[in-house]
Simulated scan of single mutants.
Amino acid sequence: MGLYIEARIHAELDLLWDRTQDPAQHQRWDLRFTTIDYLPRAEGEPQHFRYATRVLPFLSVAGTGVSAGETERPDGTRTSALRFASPHPLSLLKEGGGYWRYVPEGDGVRFLTGYDYRPRWGRFGRVADRFLFRPLMVWATAWSFDRLRLWLERGITPERALWNWLAELAVRALVLTAACVGIFQGPGHAASLMFAIPPLLLVAACLALFASPLPCVPAARRCVRRAPARARAPRLTRTLETPR
Rank of each mutant, 00 (worst) to 15 (best):
L3Y: 08
I5E: 14
I5W: 06
E6Y: 05
A7Y: 08
R8V: 14
R8M: 15
A11R: 05
A11W: 01
L13H: 04
W17F: 09
T20F: 04
D22C: 09
P23I: 07
A24N: 14
Q27D: 12
Q27Y: 06
D30H: 09
T35C: 13
D37Q: 15
P40T: 08
P40R: 04
P40E: 10
P40W: 01
Q47R: 09
Y51K: 03
T53V: 11
R54A: 14
L56I: 06
P57I: 06
P57T: 08
P57F: 09
F58Q: 14
F58K: 12
L59S: 10
A62Q: 15
G65I: 06
S67R: 15
E72R: 14
G76F: 05
R78T: 08
S80V: 13
A81Y: 00
A81E: 05
A85D: 03
L90G: 06
L90V: 07
L90H: 08
L90S: 08
E95H: 13
G96A: 06
G97C: 06
W100M: 09
V103S: 11
E105R: 09
E105C: 07
E105F: 02
E105A: 12
G106P: 01
G106Q: 02
D107V: 01
D107K: 05
R110I: 09
L112D: 04
G114N: 03
Y117N: 04
P119I: 04
R120C: 07
G125F: 03
V127C: 13
V127E: 08
V127S: 14
R130D: 12
R130F: 11
F131H: 10
R134K: 13
M137N: 13
M137T: 11
M137E: 11
A140N: 05
A140M: 09
W143A: 12
W143E: 12
S144P: 02
S144Y: 00
F145P: 00
D146E: 03
D146N: 02
D146C: 02
L148E: 00
I156C: 00
T157N: 02
E159I: 00
A161H: 00
L162Y: 02
W165S: 10
R172T: 02
A173V: 01
L174H: 04
V175Q: 02
V175E: 04
L176W: 04
A179M: 02
C180A: 15
C180K: 10
V181Q: 05
I183W: 07
I183S: 07
H189P: 07
H189L: 15
M194K: 14
F195L: 14
L200E: 11
L202G: 15
A205L: 08
C206W: 14
L207R: 10
A211Q: 07
P213G: 12
C216K: 08
A219D: 12
R222Q: 03
C223V: 01
V224Q: 13
R226L: 12
R226S: 11
P228E: 06
A229L: 11
A231I: 02
A233C: 09
A233M: 11
R235Q: 15
L240Q: 07
E241N: 13
P243I: 06
R244V: 09
